[in-house]
Amino acid sequence: MTDVDQRPSAVVPFHDASGRFARGNPGRVPGSRNKVSNAALTEIRGMKDSAIAILRQKLAAGDWDAVIFVLDRVLPKGRPIDVPDASAATVSEMLAAGELTITEAKDLATAIERLAGIASIDELRSRLEALEASINDHRRA
């Protein structure tokens, strides 16, 4: 391999001698797909009608493993949880009573913590706006 790939680039070479992206070249845009991924997705989308037909045949034949395999990948994970109030004490009580799994309690506690953070940011924003308004009123007077 040469010091730098010989591919055309308007700004900088793609790779350095070690195969890493050259300085100033961030690489592919995050979230973009390469040609192979796009071709595979197109191929899979083209197979959907035959896949559904095969799934119907397996269901008619009583092959529940195939149905469960597909539904596990299509349906959302988890279950709906009815929580009386969003507090750590309630989550702890529900966990102790066996109404929540440890994972559900952890996920719920994380969500409550993030919501509380958002609420405190909103409160700080309103207090800051009130202070700015007060300062502006004082300057005008």
Rank of each mutant, 00 (worst) to 15 (best):
P30R: 00
P26N: 07
G62H: 15
R73D: 03
K35A: 11
A88F: 04
V67W: 09
A96D: 06
A39K: 08
D82K: 09
V91T: 07
S120P: 01
G78L: 15
I52K: 09
Q57N: 08
G19R: 00
L95W: 00
A40P: 04
G27K: 00
V36R: 15
R56S: 14
L108C: 00
R114P: 00
D85Q: 09
I81H: 03
T101D: 09
A111C: 06
E132N: 12
G31Q: 15
T101A: 10
V74P: 00
A97M: 04
A111E: 15
A130C: 03
I112K: 01
N25V: 01
L131W: 12
G98E: 12
R45Q: 08
K77W: 09
T110E: 12
L124C: 07
R28H: 13
S32C: 02
L71D: 13
S134V: 11
L75E: 11
I68R: 10
A89Q: 07
A97N: 12
D65M: 06
L131E: 06
A97D: 11
T90D: 00
V36T: 08
A60Y: 03
V67T: 14
G117R: 01
L108M: 00
L41D: 12
L95T: 07
G98H: 06
T90M: 03
I118Q: 08
K35I: 11
V91A: 10
L124K: 07
K77M: 07
S87T: 11
L124T: 05
R23M: 02
A96W: 09
S126Q: 05
D137T: 01
A105E: 10
I121R: 08
A51R: 04
L100D: 02
I121T: 11
R127P: 02
